[in-house]
Design a protein around this nucleic acid. Structure first.
Lengths: 234, 234
DNA sequence: CTTCCATTAATGTATATACATAATTGAGTC
DNA sequence: GACTCAATTATGTATATACATTAATGGAAG
């Protein structure tokens, strides 16, 4: 088939093509490694490398002694980009502006403790509005666990949006998103300039580093102006 | 550090931990392969395997002759899992029921052509409701490109939900999701049993195989009963 | 000082080999 | 037929070695 590049890449492409075309359906046993060695005239290590990559990609699974099989596709996985709102707005060719409405360092309240899963300590609480081309784009409420990120207390978030700063300064190991739709109430009406009851999208995010929660963010977008888009490959 | 498992896994974990903790900041050159060989008392192939995996994960990059470096974090991407609705309902311990309201094979309309990016041919159009524990859970409208998946014409989608069938029978190479919030109108009121203007979440999905679009789906969830949750690691 | 080029040192790929591990197979036993 | 257990076999990991490829380096020539 293809002739370009390394042998392992070629083996990988060939097998992937056979699976994608449906020629090798889910559950099918693919040839044994020693058969692929013969087919491609290469060593087992090279075959194994190609198969290992396909395994990491989730296309195949193998069982010792039994062989290697085409996976039954399961959950779909989408590459959802963690939106840096400033970049997102700039990418649409609009001018970006940030209004910081509130900045407070306080001892963790009951709600803060629940959202950040901490027993005490102090948190940095922020409320801000993101504007695109002069119009309100999103409303953001954020909590930062100062025990995990003490240096955040010194940052001027009126200049750099908290999401942008955290993304580029704090490494994280795990995160969770929760996306919901709700009818706008008192708070959002003025801040986003929308009418009562208008549908809004809320994007909540919790971010961990190891066992420790770093930050909680809740971003609210007007439903008629915003769509969350994720494009991906399996 | 850790002692369990294969050597390559241990090397990988150690390096990952150093990067995550910030000890090795972006741009830092990590030790040369021959230095890691000495550190771990293993062969270069084993070190190389660990590094290759970290490269695929995007944590490091390497340049011949210069060495291997910690990557500068880029766009943060997350794996958003969007499960099969039937499995999702079952996973919550609720009973699942499917109502197929409409099933039609027709020549592609203008809208069908736009959504599936086809010039003509026939499509299978479906409308159905997913129920969880007797309550409406989601409303689904789906188009299937019969030129790409002719066997779909023979399937009884009153038994198997279209999403489940497609997931397990049709391999795909690319997909796009679009998530929006909107106020419920005429169609949704009765089907979902909600009141006028209630916020709903719409999840639209286009799926490709190579250059060809396979299917388009639009799922509508009542905003007060549904949250899309995605948990992931970088 | 700048340009050119050979040297050199790092990663990239591939091989042949070895032993470990797990699970199927099949023979032997009850 | 049902159970036990050893032989078999495919994958999993690791090694030592070799050569290819790329680009930083440093010295020679202008």
């Amino acid at each position: 088939m293809t002739e370009s590049g390394a042998i392992h890449a070629r083996i990988r492409r060939d097998i992937e093509a056979r699976i994608m075309s449906g020629e090798w359906a889910p559950g099918t046993r693919i040839p044994y490694e020693h058969q692929l060695m013969a087919t491609y005239g290469c060593s087992r290590m090279t075959v194994n490398r190609a198969l290992r990559m396909l395994m990491e990609a989730g296309l195949i699974e193998s069982r010792r002694r039994a062989g290697t099989f085409v996976s039954h596709p399961r959950v779909q996985r989408a590459a959802l980009e963690i939106p840096d709102i400033r970049d997102e707005v700039a990418g649409q060719g609009e001018s970006y502006r940030l209004d910081l409405d509130r900045r407070e360092i306080r001892a963790a309240s009951e709600e803060d403790k629940r959202l950040l899963q901490i027993d005490g300590g102090s948190v940095l609480a922020l409320e801000c509005r993101h504007h695109a081309g002069g119009r309100a784009y999103a409303l953001e409420r954020r909590l930062i666990n100062l025990a995990a990120v003490p240096e955040a207390a010194e940052v001027d978030f009126a200049i750099e949006p908290p999401g942008s700063w955290l993304l580029s300064h704090v490494p994280w190991t795990e995160a969770e998103h929760r996306i919901t739709a709700f009818n706008a109430g008192g708070k959002e009406l003025v801040a986003l300039g929308i009418s009562a009851g208008a549908a809004c999208m809320a994007l909540e995010r919790w971010t961990w580093r190891g066992e420790e929660r770093i930050t909680y963010a809740r971003q609210v977008y007007p439903g008629d102006r915003y769509a969350l888009v994720a494009r991906f490959r399996p």
